[in-house]
Nucleic acid binder design. Structure first.
Lengths: 250, 250
DNA sequence: CGCAATATTGACCATCATCAATTGGCGTGG
DNA sequence: CCACGCCAATTGATGATGGTCAATATTGCG
């Protein structure tokens, strides 16, 4: 629970990897990112990290596990707004938007690091380039929201699931967490439905269809993409909105 | 089409008003905003301003009229991602995200001002506070995307339209463009449908319901909210996500 | 082994989409 | 001044995607 934890090198490095995927970093800047003091916390599946209405004085770096942002609406319904992989700082926005307008929670046992805003502000003051890249990160965040809006608003259930699995594949790949066409994805079918504006029942049926059609297999352990071409075509997936210019593509 | 246009004071001032709604501005900062050089352009209804794939070297300030961001998907379907009022800079993100991942177009005859990125970069270098407020603006942009996702994913047609009319009321109010519970809103029913993931036909029916129930009346000239309380309740409207702390509330 | 959460399947239903036609407003040209 | 054309609004009839309700099967795990 304190600052210098011995076996955290690999996890911290994913932050550097993530930020480097957004733009050039000098060695000094990389080291400054590596040196960020953080308070590490282990989370259980389902634990909330920040809630709507909070005014946190820290931001949260995902070290490992799987985290999501969500909003609750009436009658226990919820909308998941984003999934976050290790290396992400899902609430980076609290640097400039003091009140949380949604929740952040763990979808699996996870480890996160809390970084004081003061450290982050000092960091961007000393390294304006890191400030640009942080800003850029929140902009890509917004680009993903937009693409999800298109999916929920204008694509059918099969296309939405196809699109989501393609997106997450590229995002996991950017932080080196894919092997062949597989990546860890611990979301339940309920959670997939909450992300895509569908019910569990329907998600279940569509997953069977996609599996039967040899496109993709999804279970609690992860996602196996068995036919990238057809899956991307079905979901009309165009990775432009991820702005991953400097990563390897699919 | 050139920099100093005589009768633009009121329109330019809306930018100052908008940015001031995001946080404190010093007199110097306000004047720097007022002095931004821009190339003014008149747009017809339907004109595109920037397109997906473009790499603009300017950002676009809405001086008057009504502008939206949208994406096209297969079979002529489209999803409108955002509406923008005068005072907004809808593509401020191009400062740090060089490639446009969506389109920006006018929904009515409009006047916009194009501002060179170099001027904006110089501005935020000289006045870091303006940089923070610009960043903040793009974050609120993202907060609105999130709220729209919730609507499209988890609210029915009546709630979505109720919610949208409430949101736009507060946003128009923040730049002083409302009178009583009315504001100009030139979107067609097709465009409202494209924003909310609905068809024209259904939008039309729901608008009739809301009018018959005495909640809100919408036509090409604008929106009359006849029963704010019930309308906001129906749409489960909570303005927290607009982060308008320093504006007057409803 | 047994609970609890998740996955799966069936039956039925509702919201909203699709297709199609009509009306009304408005600008333009004869 | 009126006819034509166009676009938006409106309404009816019908249908499909996906939701709701409910029951059963699995799976993970203490």
């Amino acid at each position: 629970m304190t600052t210098p934890e011995p076996p955290l090198r690999a996890e911290r490095e994913r932050l550097v990897q993530k930020i480097r995927s957004l733009g050039e970093l000098s060695p000094d800047e990389e080291n400054a990112l590596r040196a960020l003091p953080m308070r590490v916390k282990e989370l259980r599946d389902g634990d909330d990290i920040v809630r709507e209405g909070d005014r946190p004085s820290v931001s949260c770096l995902v070290l490992n596990g799987f985290v999501c942002r969500y909003k609750l609406v009436s009658e226990g319904r919820r909308q998941i707004l984003a999934f976050h992989t290790p290396g992400d700082i899902p609430d980076l926005q609290t640097l400039h938007l003091s009140v949380m307008d949604h929740n952040l929670g763990a979808l699996a046992p996870s480890k996160v690091g809390f970084i004081e805003h003061t450290y982050l502000h000092n960091l961007v003051r000393e390294f304006p380039n890191i400030g640009h890249l942080f800003w850029r990160d929140t902009l890509i965040d917004a680009a993903i929201f937009r693409e999800w809006m298109v999916g929920i608003g204008r694509r059918n259930a099969h296309q939405r699931i196809a699109h989501l699995t393609c997106e997450m594949y590229l995002r996991f790949k950017a932080v080196g967490l894919t092997t062949d066409h597989h990546y860890p994805f611990p979301a339940t079918q309920t959670e997939i439905g909450d992300a895509l504006g569908l019910t569990v029942v329907h998600v279940n049926r569509v997953l069977r269809d996609l599996r039967d059609d040899g496109l993709v297999t999804i279970d609690r352990t992860g996602v196996h993409i068995t036919n990238w071409e057809d899956l991307a075509a079905l979901g009309e997936f165009d990775p432009l909105y991820l702005h991953q210019d400097r990563s390897v593509s699919a």
